[in-house]
Design a protein around this nucleic acid. Structure first.
Lengths: 222, 222
DNA sequence: TTTGTATTTACGGTTTTCCGCATAAAACTA
DNA sequence: TAGTTTTATGCGGAAAACCGTAAATACAAA
């Protein structure tokens, strides 16, 4: 079993529960952090010791407060951690259920497991830790099917994503075209922008561009 | 201090933490429920006993799973509870930070306290329980100022809200006008709908209707 | 009731979005 | 390389959104 584990999570009510689970799994040392920056510091520090941290369990969203932060989310923490300790195992533990975000974590950030917060979280966390120990990828029960059915999202590329973001930010069609022009992106003409929006409307079954933005937000694409 | 408290929360890692806090506050009996429906049942059942539940601590969002549910959210639970036991004290404990939703809870549902899940949650929960015991209203630290600054939202009435919902659902301007016509709502002409959208765009500083929908979702209005 | 004010509605014109079509450019294939 | 397919662009017209204005209606105070 893992010797040393770090929990990055700002909800202190969760710490106790999580620690109990890990203790039952015979994990010797459990460190905690309430801020992403602290988590990164602890990981860096432990690298030069006899027993470095072997597993990071992290939430995705961390509340803002008075403290200045450089890392503001689990995603950023994960990216930073990969730089200093690429072999570190990572389990994401979050309420995030939007399949777009989760797919990105697994495919882009290469996290080892995703456990959704909810009724089965304790059981799922145990399974996840055991799976990760065996170098397996694990995502909680109800997610497996969702990920397969979310191919529509994979069909949206980074330009679609940018386009949706610009729409949500209040740019008009021709302003978006100008933006694409400036940034030297492909398919920058007004007509191409229009066609791209239309393609997305068909893909997400949206009647209007307002609904398209609502769906994109709901699915966690933007 | 309260004699009997019910916690409605589907994250089982949180239960332990909350229970510890409540025990420290000398609360004798702590009941828990993972589903809204179960919570309501327990409240109803306790009404006919010698010591009924005096305080309900509830989350807002409950995950869907295999079980059929009639009550699917904390908001619905609160509404149902008010019918059977109007004098029951209620503390909402949630990650919801969108001021629109929170304001509605306090003003419409008349909950006694709102504690935001996060770093200070334990301390805030203790404060909340003590305040509610003294018949006071309590909402966590960082919220007090936000609520005051959210007057813009109070300026949106139920028709604005409906309008935003219909926009997000993909109805066109004239379809919205027809909808208002059918439902016999005031200001049902196309021009009035347009003006209302325009008013909202000014209010929320949105350039386009797409951005307006994005902002409305972000602020928890729809 | 009258008067004044605010809201709602209708009309008309401008801008933006939407969409089909034709051509041009690019990517791909044999 | 030449031919084929896909993608991008430009143009024009229709539909929808946008916006000012004025008449009609609703509402409140006098």
């Amino acid at each position: 079993m893992f010797q040393k584990v770090l929990i990055a999570e700002d909800q202190n009510s969760i710490h106790k529960g999580l620690e109990n689970i890990l203790k039952d799994l015979k994990i010797k040392e459990i460190a905690t952090a309430q801020y992403c920056d602290d988590a990164l510091l602890k990981i860096k520090a432990s690298l030069n010791t006899a027993n470095p941290i072997e597993l990071l369990i992290t939430d995705l969203s961390f509340k803002e407060d008075h403290r200045d932060r450089t890392l503001t989310s689990g995603q950023e923490l994960i990216r930073a951690v990969m730089d200093v300790q690429p072999e570190l195992k990572i389990i994401v533990f979050s309420v995030e259920h939007r399949i777009g975000k989760i797919k990105k974590l697994i495919e882009v950030s290469k996290v080892d497991a995703y456990v959704e917060k909810g009724r089965e979280e304790s059981r799922e966390m145990i399974k996840a830790v055991r799976a990760v120990l065996k170098d397996e990828i694990y995502y909680s029960h109800n997610l497996a099917q969702l990920i397969r059915s979310a191919d529509d999202i994979s069909q949206t590329d980074i330009y679609d994503e940018l386009l949706l973001q610009l729409l949500a930010k209040g740019l008009k069609r021709n302003q978006i075209a100008s933006y694409f022009e400036e940034k030297d992106l492909p398919a920058r003409s007004l007509r191409s922008i229009e066609k791209r929006i239309n393609k997305l409307k068909v893909l997400f079954d949206a009647n209007t561009s307002e609904q398209l933005v609502a769906i994109a937000i709901d699915r966690g694409i933007i």
